[in-house]
Write a protein that binds this DNA or RNA. Structure first.
Length: 164
DNA sequence: GCCAACGTTGGC
DNA sequence: GCCAACGTTGGC
């Protein structure tokens, strides 16, 4: 079956594309939204490709590419009382929270959110819809191809002022 | 720091 | 089932 395309959000202060490159692969745990979980559990398949998006960053944008490997697994953090993602109501017999595993594919110069927003070819992309906050979201083949094309271009990134 | 948008919770 | 209150996300 043809691969599908996704976008995964991560705060780079927490886990960046560089971290993924260093580690090679990672379990996409800590997702506590049912819609996002369902995408990982039911629709992500080995070989699917995902845009790696840096959220809460300056500037935010697509920072690289990852590939889905293996099959979904129970997210171990739900069983760890010390984890912020602990879920006392989940059981090992029937885990509520599931994670995909993704591998590093490529890192590229950031494609800033600003550039995505300004591109008419990306109109309708889930990421750009008002108010959407899903951390795991589908991307259409044409939008995916377009973002990759943008990634080959160079962007002058204007940092916003945000002094600590 | 602000705030809009959204999801979840819980009283009724 | 309704919906107000609350917490979170995430851009700016």
């Amino acid at each position: 079956m043809a691969p599908r395309y996704w976008l995964l959000k991560s705060e780079p202060q927490v886990f960046s594309i560089d971290d993924l490159q260093r580690e090679g692969r990672t379990g996409w745990g800590g997702v506590r939204n049912y819609q996002a979980r369902n995408f990982m559990r039911d629709e992500m398949k080995e070989g699917d490709l995902a845009l790696f998006y840096h959220s809460n960053a300056t500037p935010p944008g697509v920072a690289g590419l990852a590939r889905v490997v293996g099959t979904p697994a129970a997210d171990p953090s739900q069983f760890d009382p010390k984890s912020p993602y602990f879920d006392a109501t989940s059981s090992k017999a029937s885990p509520r929270w599931v994670m995909a595993t993704v591998a590093f594919v490529e890192r590229f110069d950031l494609v800033p959110l600003e550039v995505l927003k300004a591109d008419p070819a990306l109109a309708g992309m889930v990421l750009l819809q008002k108010g959407q906050r899903l951390s795991v979201q589908p991307v259409s083949p044409s939008h995916f191809a377009r973002v990759l094309k943008l990634a080959k271009a160079k962007f002058k990134v204007t940092r916003r002022d945000n002094h600590p």
